[in-house]
Design a protein around this nucleic acid. Structure first.
Lengths: 204, 204
DNA sequence: TTCTAAACTTGAGTCAATTCAATTTCGGAG
DNA sequence: CTCCGAAATTGAATTGACTCAAGTTTAGAA
């Protein structure tokens, strides 16, 4: 039995993340005590701090799993996007946003974003930024794909446009998670309206 | 001597904010102990918590002063914007961003943004959102002004375009404060590039 | 098999934000 | 001028995240 050590490590890591995910969902991020997470994961408090720099990082680890699913869903849209530029962009954005609340509550998103802003250089702060960059890249890829399909003008800079669309969506998503009463539908409608001028300008 | 109570209140509030501002600047947000802020302000720890819900809110109060200055500077640009659409937008954005680091360090911005995301419903969380909205409105106003001046197409939706431009800038600003090595110049160049397709589309 | 050092875990202790019951101060009615 | 209750202040006590010195486990060399 080689690498018993590595196996234990993986086990403990998983147990910590799962315990935290359940507690966060049940009592919220602030309500979850590290000591209780440790108890549920059958690990000591110190061990949690051996795996994660602080409480926020445990949450960002959960976010990271969620975003990976979002990225996978995004890939499927890009593989076969609607011909119409506006519809294609709407489809990608709707996919991102509808997937975003499957595992995470608005409160969890708020905490995760706050942590990644507060500590951009911590391991998970970096991981979070990397995920954001991947999502932005995916948005740029969609624009390029639309250019290849002949539905978007070839002369526009796909990267700039993709970043602009992604940043706007991201900022609107932040507003969305800050407002407990805002619905996904309202969010999507608002973003669609904001994008309209630009999508008309890049459509062929 | 009527309203001695109100006067004391105002005095203490000011002393707390000024003490905090100095300490934050000198030792950073994390390094500033509430007890020391209290000492400098000649107030007890409890009193600080009577005026502010928590440490983060003290910082957001400082940010709020800074943003009010930014808004005033923005007004001056809108009063007499460059004729060229691209130049006008660049000018407004440059004004915002160059003013943003006068009193606040990147670290202070990170903390303030984190707090306002974490606690959107606290008094200062709301104040922060309101300021953001005012800035967005100002950006929309610039677009409308450009339409009136005849430099931007009349048929575009100024509000949508303004929000899109502002949200992109805001998101880029967040990236900027997360990266200690990124310069204002780099930031402005990146935003300019992202805006180009849209500004070309709305220019007459 | 036995031993050693490196890697990992542990939980009592530290530290700093936040709370709250007791105390003080203020406005104005009598 | 005196006194009462509301409003504000106070700082010792509480709370909970985080640390670190001591103890335990594992890989693999002898």
């Amino acid at each position: 039995m080689t690498n018993l050590r590595a196996k234990h490590k993986q086990d403990r890591n998983l147990r910590i993340v799962e315990a935290a995910a359940e507690l966060f969902r049940r009592v919220g991020y602030e309500g979850a005590r590290i000591e209780e997470i440790a108890g549920m994961a059958e690990v000591s408090v110190g061990t949690i701090y051996n795996y994660f720099q602080n409480k926020g990082e445990v949450l960002v680890a959960i976010v990271s799993m969620e975003v990976h699913e979002v990225l996978a869903a995004g890939l499927r849209i890009i593989a076969k996007p609607p011909k119409n530029v506006g519809k294609a962009i709407d489809a990608l954005i709707a996919t991102y946003i509808e997937h975003s609340l499957v595992y995470l509550s608005k409160e969890m998103w708020r905490q995760a974003m706050a942590t990644s802003t507060q500590q951009p250089d911590s391991p998970f702060g970096k991981a979070y930024s990397a995920l954001d960059r991947e999502l932005a890249n995916q948005t740029c890829s969609l624009i390029m794909k639309l250019q290849q399909q002949g539905s978007a003008r070839g002369e526009i800079d796909a990267r700039s446009v993709g970043e602009l669309l992604f940043n706007n969506m991201n900022m609107m998503f932040i507003e969305f998670i800050k407002r407990e009463d805002m619905t996904i539908k309202e969010l999507l409608t608002a973003i669609h309206r904001q994008n309209r001028t630009l999508t008309l300008a890049i459509a062929k």
